[in-house]
Structure formats: C-alpha cells, structure tokens
Design a protein around this nucleic acid. Structure first.
Lengths: 335, 335
DNA sequence: GTGAAAGCGCTAACAG
DNA sequence: CTGTTAGCGCTTTCAC
C-alpha cells in the first residue's frame, strides 16, 4: 500500500514529527537523524500526501485556470504558456473552459474552491464582480489575465488593448487607407480595441466612421459573414481590422469568395498572432500578444501572492505589430 | 471563515455524522432531520471539503490528463472534448503537457499521484511501460487515448490508425495517383498510418515505394521541409499523405513556394481534421478523428473504472475521410 | 534535538 | 433513526 510518514518514521527509528520536520526543513534536527530520515525516505520512495498536508493548512500547489475556450488557438496557446511557467514554479493547473458563461464560471469557482486550489487565474470574461470580491474576502488569491480588470485592486496581466487597436488602425492609415472597417466581439478587450480604432481615425482626421459590426462569436464564420456585409455595402472598405485572428481568417475567406484579392484590394489586419496567422495565404498581419511573457508574469504574481503575500500589481504589456502579407498600400482610385 | 460540517451540525441541532449521512445520501435519516440539515446547509452555503473526504478514502473527482502539447490544435481540441465530458460527469482535469518527454511524464505522474487524482488519462506517447504497470498495481485507474496501447490490459480509446492510413492512401490511389509520398513522425500512431499506407500500395499493385521520410517534430516547418525534399527529387510524387494536418499545411506551403499548384499538380491529404484544415486555401482533405466521441468514451471508461470497477475495454473508432480541396485526380502525363 | 498529542474536516463502523 | 468515536496522513505547538 501507500507509504506514509509512519512507515518512514518507524524504519528510521524516529517519530513522525521528526520526519515531518526534516521533510519541511523546519526546526532543528541533528545532521545524523536528518541524513537517516532522508535516506529512508528515498529508500521507501515516500512522497507526502498533498491532501493530508493541505488539511493542516498547507498549500495544494494547484491553481484553477478559468479560460473561455481551450479549443480557441489563442487561449490554448496562453494556457500552455501559463502551464509551463506553473510547472517551473511547482504548480499544477486545473483548467476549465467557461465559454464566456457566467453560469459555468460560478460552478467551476465553487467546485475548485472545495478542492482547495491555492488560487485562481481568470482569463475568462467574468461578469460577476461579487464573485471575485467574495474570493478575495475569503483570502483566496485571484488574478486576472487577458481580460478587463474590474475596478477593484487585483493582480492583473493584460495587454494594452486600446493601444493595440490604435496601432493596428494607425498602421492601416499609414498605408493610405481611409475607409477602414472593424469587426469585434462585444467583450471588453474588443471594445477597447474598438476605442483605439476610433481614436486613431480621429487623430488622423478621418471623419467618416468605418463599418462597425459585432460578431456574436469569435469564429471564422462570423468574420466571413460580417466581411461579406461590408463588401456588399455601398461603400466597401479598403481595409478591415478584425479584433482577432480567427475573425481575420474569415475576412480573408470572404474576400476570396468575392474574388477580391488580399491585400491588393482589401487589407486585413488581425489580433493575437496565433499560429493560424501563418497558415493562411496570404499570411495575416496581426497584433501579437506576448503570451509567453504573460504566462510567466501571471504565475509570478500568483506565487508571490500565495507564498509571500506580496502586494497587488497590475502589469500592462504592449502588443506588437507583426507585418505579414495581408496588408498593403491602398490603391487610389482617383489619382 | 470556512464553514465546516460542524457548523452545519450545530446549527441544525444534530451530530456531524447525521450531516454527513444526509449529504452523502447514506443510512436512514428521517425526512424531518434531512430537510432541516439540507436547509441549514443551504443557508450556510456549506460545501464539503474535498481534501478531507479524500483523506478518508473518497474520491477527489479530479483526473490527471497527460497530453503531448496543449498548443497543438489536435490535442487542445481533444482536451476540450475530454474536459466537457468530464465536467458533465462531475470531474475536473489537471492538464499537463509532456512534449513527448518521458522525464516530464514521470514527473507529472508522481506529482499528481501525491495529489490523489482518481486516475490518469494518458494521451501522451508514453515510453515507460513499467510506470503504467506500477500505477495499475497501485490500483490507480489509467486509460489511454489516441496513442498506442501497450500489450497489457488497459482501458483504451483509439482510432484505427492503420485503417486511417490505408483509407487515405486508397483514396489517393482511387484518384489515379501512383507516386505517393508520405510524411510521418516517428511515433506509434504515425507508424501505423505508414503501415496502412504501405498496405494500400501493395494491395493496389503499386510496387514502387513512394518517398518516406520522418519529421522530427510535428510542425508546419517540417512538413514544408520534407515536401521540398520530395519535390526536389528525381521522381517527385503527385500526391503526399501527411500523417497530420500541421504537416499537411507545410506540404501546401512548400508547393506554393515552388509554384506547384495544389491540387492540380500535387494532392495533399492530412490527418486529424483540426480547425486549421479549413483555414488554409486550398482547404485540406484529411482523415477526421472523432474527438468528441473519443472524449466522451474515454471519460466513461474512466468513470466506470473509478466508480463501478467495471472491466477493461478497448474501444477502436474509425477515422473518416473528409474530402476538401487539396486532393484531385492525377493528371496523366502520357495519355 | 526529539517526541507526544491535538487537530485539520470528513467518513464509517458501531452503539444505542 | 441518530450520535460517539476512531481514524485518514500530516503539521505544529509544547514539553522533555
């Protein structure tokens, strides 16, 4: 059967208290018994039971990660990077896809709380501020990544979505585009990118508002559908800024179907810089999110909070323009 | 602070044993006290501590999922489907990416064992049979998905990779191709697909072995590189079967770079049917793995084993040909 | 330096 | 039908 601290104690000829102490590097133990215990521990291949020690107030070294959808390439990429960092710091992740549903989020939150996770990383679009506050009151570390930070002090790692939208749009403008459409989903990050888009237009003296439509889902289908709408309109744009890569792929598909060439007749710029941006032809110009750094930072915040009670920080990272083939200078119709 | 079973007992005016019984639906409890307890439980928002009950031999309702790489679209898709099914059955998943490294696998295995997971799902390419056997001896449920089943009785959900390779190749042959290359990674599933490929060639009387090369990684880059090799050879193939979609994308990229049109001059067929198959142009013909069913089946096997000690099953699912745009009839050079 | 003992929150006999 | 009690495996005072 499972080897317990008693087995080690007996075999080493000491008490379980002593064993516990050497294992946790606590108290004063003579070098001799310490050696002895460590020796037996190895011999018996003893690994302390996490449940039992968690019961006595220790950590479980597992963190709950709530994420909208693990099958979405951006989030699976992010999750993988968080996982790597967690692993390095000695933590495991329980991952839960919430599909942006408050109901699922709440369910997972209470489920994982029962399982004594050491804290939560919320990548999900969380509606219910009270839930977060509840967690904080219960002294459960929570931090937020890649989504809006509520107006409460909480550890956060985000990118500057406003800047991202601003830069993407500015780049398009610098290529000579003036009629620029945007496709977003009605979630916080996208609304910020939209705000950046508007600001860029305004700052460049472009009065005419471009096409603005919300996708109901983040999917190729929705990107395609909305782009078709734009292309069918009286005043089709010469460029479209999609608030993520998936939508951008949809835009390119729509253009292809209409026989409109990208980037010659339509420039497309995405957001996230997921793997799919390099799959499509033409490859997608996009705003890259530094997922690796984000994963590292969020785990460091978490661990700082869990193990050292560090103070709260908000980390804002900058997205970065990655120019590929889907954007080009606008071809002036009137010269 | 945290509300415990004692709080409920006190407030309900009963003993903790009674509370425990009504919560677990055990023993005989009068309707009156049952109501009372449930009432108080709700009022106090009591949720039993999973650690504590796990300590007494109950389940933790969490399962360890070891998977090669969460950022790989096939695996993230699979993981998401397992997660959904797990969720429905009341389980959570601790997910770990192993990168096909025995070292990581072993580490995670012992880590999660300490955390008292109820069992393991191994999607990873596990080298170390002894480790699996060890788990089974310790009576820890293990099952295997989407990878080779070792020669020991163990719950398994796999697709028939041999058939998949056979079908993919047969389809190409039915299109008139005779010079068919294959790109695989040297892992079990891919070797099986390769075996199917060879069998199909043989069964159709095609003597000349096509190009066969192993990719060192599952990546677009390797698919591209090897396809370039094939295309540069004396006897370039008219079709290439890549053992997964990522490699297939690479093949298409290589063709594009060489000015060879797909499918007119080169047919490409992939494997997995991940989202990326529909992103690329031309969209990728591929062998679909029924990930949703796989996720459901594997969780049912796990739960059957954990909760009902059911006997071991091996479930073999059939991959299915999904014809898209990357394959076409061969154009005969000599007519 | 080391160990006895209490207790973390819960379950499972076993009494009553 | 309900409660008492002995653990589950470990940590942590507090004596010795």
């Amino acid at each position: 059967m499972k080897v317990t601290i008693y087995d080690v104690a007996k075999k080493a000829g000491v008490s379980i208290a002593t064993v516990s102490k050497v294992i946790n590097n606590k108290g004063n133990i003579s070098e001799k018994t310490r050696k002895k215990v460590l020796d037996v521990k190895k011999k018996l291949d003893f690994h302390p039971n996490v449940m039992a020690s968690a019961l006595t107030g220790k950590k479980t070294k597992t963190i709950g990660l709530l994420i909208p959808d693990l099958a979405n390439p951006f989030f699976s990429d992010l999750a993988r990077n968080i996982e790597d960092s967690a692993n390095e710091l000695g933590y495991n992740l329980i991952m839960c896809s919430t599909d942006y549903l408050a109901e699922k989020e709440n369910k997972y939150l209470s489920l994982l709380k029962q399982k004594n996770v050491d804290g939560f990383i919320l990548a999900s679009g969380f509606e219910d501020l009270r839930k977060i506050q509840e967690l904080m009151e219960e002294n459960i570390p929570v931090s937020i990544i890649a989504r809006d930070s509520p107006m409460i002090p909480i550890n956060t790692v985000v990118i500057d979505d406003f800047m991202g939208g601003y830069q993407a749009t500015s780049y398009l403008i610098s290529l000579g585009h003036e009629n620029i459409g945007i496709i977003a989903r009605n979630i916080w990050s996208n609304r910020e990118r939209l705000r950046g888009y508007k600001q860029a237009l305004e700052d460049n003296g472009i009065k005419a508002p471009g096409h603005i439509e919300y996708a109901e889902e983040i999917s190729i289908g929705w990107g395609k559908k909305i782009t078709q709408n734009y292309l069918n309109s009286d005043n089709p744009p010469t460029a479209v800024f999609t608030c993520n890569d998936l939508l951008g792929i949809g835009a390119i598909h729509a253009a292809r179907e209409y026989g409109i060439s990208v980037p010659e007749q339509l420039s497309v710029i995405g957001f996230d810089d997921t793997m799919i941006a390099t799959i499509i032809a033409p490859s997608l110009t996009t705003m890259a999110q530094p997922v690796q750094i984000m994963g590292k930072e969020i785990m460091e915040l978490m661990v700082g909070m869990i193990e050292r009670n560090e103070i709260i920080k908000q980390i804002i990272l900058m997205p970065e323009l990655v120019v590929r083939e889907s954007t080009a200078k606008v071809i002036k119709k009137y010269f």
